[in-house]
Design a protein around this nucleic acid. Structure first.
Length: 273
DNA sequence: ACTGGCTCCTGAGGGC
DNA sequence: TGCCCTCAGGAGCCAG
């Protein structure tokens, strides 16, 4: 199973950029009527003949800048992109394929159909799905001061706060657990109660965990593969996620596990206050 | 303005 | 071996 978080999306982007930039779409194959949203039957007509000018990322969205518009793609929970030869036979969950003028095909596979694929005209960052997004966690805009100010007088659990894409993009469940572990902050703490030093530790931890994950090519949970089919290796370094009941890597105390916002949450009751 | 809960989907894994 | 149940989760959406 694939769990694309920001590092996986960025790894995917870096994997396809050298192969697709400047290429022209010669055809598109749709094999599903809908993913998270209906797949527009207009997509083949809209994409045919489009040249890929750039492939960028905003949060976990990929933006394919084309001659006359932008293809917006979200991998959802189980989606991944793979470059395959144009004559490669499709599998059960290969819902969309973009065919290019160099005999390669960009294949979108997504067993649970939580992904999104939209054709946008106009300024893509003004689209409702993108306009309200918070800063990129690895940009200069994501600072302890920013997090401190945004969190004042808010009672929501710190973990849910950092997973809110309107606050900061790209922090999914796995890395939220890891960042809170590294920062020594209890996931359930009301975010408004964090002291400045704690927001400093938290922003640093989010940067650290995402930076390390990108450097290692994303997390391997089961069979995560990037665009070229290479596995990531970050799962070897997970301290919290998936380790409920196991000893804390710092103090040895059994990690606790519960649900927060209906998401699996793991923390050390001694190290994270 | 916030907050928490619901929803989409299907494979994996556990219990018997 | 096979069936049934629960769980996993990104993020938009909505009611209170």
């Amino acid at each position: 199973m694939v769990m694309p978080e920001l590092p996986e999306v960025e790894t995917t982007r870096r994997g396809i950029v050298p192969h697709l930039t400047g290429r022209t779409v010669t055809g598109i194959t749709l094999r599903a009527a809908k993913l998270r949203l209906p797949l527009s039957a207009e997509l083949p007509r809209q994409l045919a003949g489009q040249r890929i000018e750039a492939i960028e990322r905003r949060g976990k969205y990929l933006l394919f800048t084309c001659s006359d518009g932008t293809l917006l793609l979200h991998l959802g929970m189980t989606g991944h992109l793979r470059l395959v030869p144009s004559d490669s036979a499709p599998g059960k969950h290969d819902h969309v394929e973009l065919h290019f003028d160099n005999n390669t095909t960009l294949r979108f596979t997504d067993p649970r159909k939580f992904g999104t694929l939209l054709w946008l005209t106009g300024e893509p960052l003004q689209h409702p799905l993108l306009a309200e997004l918070g800063p990129e966690p690895l940009s200069a805009d994501f600072t302890a001061e920013y997090l401190f100010k945004r969190s004042r007088k808010r009672s929501v659990a710190t973990k849910l706060f950092i997973m809110n894409s309107k606050i900061v993009v790209g922090v999914g469940n796995i890395y939220a657990n890891e960042a809170l572990f590294l920062a020594g902050i209890n996931p359930a703490r009301a975010v408004g109660s964090l002291a400045p030093a704690e927001t400093e530790r938290l922003t640093a931890a989010i940067r650290q965990v995402l930076t390390e994950a990108i450097a290692l090519g994303g997390t391997t949970l089961h069979d995560y593969l990037d665009a070229a089919g290479q596995p990531g290796y970050f799962s070897l370094k997970l301290h919290a996620y998936g380790r409920g009941g196991k000893p804390c890597s710092v103090c040895g105390t059994a990690l606790q596990e519960s649900r927060l916002g209906n998401r699996s949450t793991v923390w050390c009751p001694k190290c994270q206050q």
